[in-house]
Nucleic acid binder design. Structure first.
Lengths: 114, 114
DNA sequence: TAGGAATTACTACAATGTAGAAATACATGC
DNA sequence: GCATGTATTTCTACATTGTAGTAATTCCTA
C-alpha cells in the first residue's frame, strides 16, 4: 500500500487551477479561477500560502514574469505543475474516484445525485 | 458565493465509506473500506478522530450496537450520514468536479488521464 | 511626490490529518 | 477464577493544511 503524499482538499483545487490556467497562472488568476469555477470564496492569503507549500514540496515551481510594458505593477510570479505534482494529484483523485465508484447502486444515495 | 463548510480530503473518504457500508459502518469497517478501496494506509486513530469531529459538527450520527450473542467483544459504535453530511459532501465534490471538468482538452493533461 | 492599483509576502491562528498508546470488555484455555 | 488474547473504542499529542488579515513592494498617474 503506497505511503502516498495525499493532497489536501484545497491543494487539489489549486493544482487543478494551475493546470487549467497554463501559462497564465499566478496568484490572482488562480484565485479567480477557483472562485468562479468552484464557486467558493477564497482569500489571497490562502492561495499564496498553499502555492508556497506546494512549491517547497516540489510539486509545483515558479518563476518571475517580465514587464509587458504597460500597466505592470509588480513582477508576477507564475506557477506551473511539476510531474511530481501531477502524480500526487492523480493519486489523490484516483482514491476518491474509487470510493465514489458505483455509489449510485446504494439506496440512500439515489436521490442525492452522486 | 456560499460560505461552504468544505470537507477535508480525509473527511470525504470517511463519509463516502459510511455511505458504502450502510448499516455495517463502524470504526473497523470504515478503516478496512478505505484501505482496500482507496488503497491507502490509515490508522484507527485517524478514523475515530475524524468520525468524532464529523459527529460534533452534526454531519453524521452514531449509536451503540447490541450484543449479537456470540463473539461480541465491546459495544460497536455504528455511524450514519445525516442529511447535512450529504449536503456537505455533495457541495465539496461538486466544486472539485467543476474544476476537473473539461480538463482533457488541455494539452499537458492528455497523457495523465484526468 | 503623493496617491492609487496590482500584486506578493508575512504573521498568526483554526481546522484537519495522523500515529501511538491506553482503556474497555468479553471469550477462552488452563 | 485468573491470565491471556482479541476486537474495539478512547485519549493524547503533534504535524500538516486551511484561512484571513495586514503589510510590503513596485510602478503608474496626476
Amino acid at each position: 500500500m503506497p505511503k502516498g503524499n495525499n493532497l489536501g482538499e484545497f491543494e487539489q483545487l489549486v493544482i487543478l487551477a494551475l493546470l487549467r490556467l497554463g501559462e497564465g497562472a499566478y496568484g490572482m488568476t488562480v484565485r479567480r479561477e477557483i472562485e468562479e469555477r468552484a464557486d467558493r470564496r477564497v482569500s489571497l492569503g490562502a492561495i499564496y500560502a498553499t502555492l508556497d507549500r506546494l512549491e517547497s514540496k516540489g510539486l509545483i515551481s515558479s518563476h518571475l514574469g517580465q514587464s509587458d510594458g504597460v500597466h505592470r505593477v509588480r513582477a508576477k510570479r507564475f506557477f506551473m505543475v511539476e510531474s511530481e505534482g501531477e502524480r500526487a494529484l492523480r493519486s489523490t483523485l484516483n482514491s476518491l474516484d474509487r470510493m465514489r465508484d458505483g455509489l449510485m447502486q446504494f439506496a440512500q444515495l439515489m436521490e442525492m445525485g452522486l
